Amino acid sequence: MQVTINGIDTRYVLSNEGGGPWLTFIHQLAGDLSVWDQQAGYFRDKYTVLRYDLRGHGETALSPEAFSIEQLSDDLAELLHKLGAPSTHVVGLSIGGMVAQQFAADHAALVDTLTVVGAPAFTPEEARPTFAQRAASVRENGTASIVEGTLERWLTADFRRRHPEVVEPVSETIMRTPSEGFARAAEAVCNFDVRNKLALVAKPTLVVAGKHDTGTPYAASKLIADAVPGARFETLDAAHLSPIESSTQFTALLETFLRSSV
C-alpha cells in the first residue's frame, strides 16, 4: 500500500489478522520493510503489525531535500495518524532504532513500548566522517559498491557461510536502495543525538545488542538501557542484524517483553 506522508509517497504493509494492539517495525539503513518478514508473520495473529519503508528506501520516494532523524520520526507519527492508530509498540533496527528513540522522545503519547535493536543513542564525533564518506562513496559508485563491506558488518562470517539463502535477499535489498536515499539517510545519522532525552522516556523499553556487532558496539547499546528508567538490556549471539541472524531468539525475546509490558 502507498500513502503520502509529509509530501512523500510512502510504502507500508499492514497485517491485522489478529486485530490486536499496534506493533510497528522500522528497518535499517540500506534496508526495507522485508527485514521484518519473519517477525511480521509471527506477530500478525495477535497484533496489528505495521511495516514501512523509510524515505529513499524500498518503494518510498526520496524527499527533494536533506532530512533529519527528527523528520523521520515525524513521518512515523503522520503515518500512524493517517492509518488511525491510537498508539503503537515501536521496534527499530539500526537507523530504525534511532528513529524509534526519537519517536519515543518526541511523540510519547503514541508509544506503548520502545524496542531498540543495534542502535546507539548518538553518533560520536569520531564516527561522523565514516558516514559522510559512505554517503559520498555511494553517490559516486552506487550502493552495489558497499554490499560486501556492509554484509561483513551485518552478519557474522559463520552465518553468511551457512545461510546463503538468507544473505542473498539482504544483498539484493542493499543494491536496490537508491544511492541518494542511502546518502541522505547516512548524513542524517551523522547528526543524531538523543542522549539528553532518554531519561524522559517513561514507557517500557527493551534494548537489544548483538555480541558481534562492530557497527554498534555493546557499550553504545548499553548506554541507552542505562539512561532510560527501568529499561531491559539483552544481548544475542549475532552481529548487527540480530532479528535475522538470531531470528528465533529475538522473536521470543520480543514476545516476552511485549507480553510483560501489557
Rank of each mutant, 00 (worst) to 15 (best):
A105Y: 01
S242N: 09
P21F: 10
A225R: 07
H57V: 09
G18M: 00
E180P: 00
E152V: 10
D158C: 08
E126D: 09
N196V: 11
E148Y: 13
T214M: 09
A231M: 13
L258E: 07
F122S: 14
R55C: 03
A119Y: 05
S87L: 11
E148D: 15
G92K: 10
R162W: 09
Q102V: 03
V116N: 09
G19D: 10
L223D: 11
S145I: 08
H163S: 12
K46W: 15
M175I: 13
I26N: 04
H163N: 12
Y47A: 10
E172L: 15
A227S: 14
D75S: 09
G97W: 03
V117F: 01
V147P: 09
S246W: 13
R128H: 08
F159V: 04
W22L: 02
S68A: 07
V90N: 01
R162C: 12
S34I: 06
E234Y: 15
L223V: 03
T4M: 10
W36Q: 02
H81P: 15
V90P: 04
T24D: 00
Q133N: 10
G7F: 12
A61R: 11
P229W: 12
F43G: 11
S87C: 06
E140C: 04
T123Q: 08
E126T: 13
G84D: 00
I8S: 13
A85T: 00
T48Q: 06
T88D: 00
M98P: 12
V207P: 09
D9R: 13
P124Q: 05
S246P: 02
L62M: 15
R195N: 11
R162L: 04
W22F: 02
N6Y: 04
S94D: 05
F182E: 12
H81I: 04
G149W: 08
S171Q: 05
P124L: 09
T248M: 14
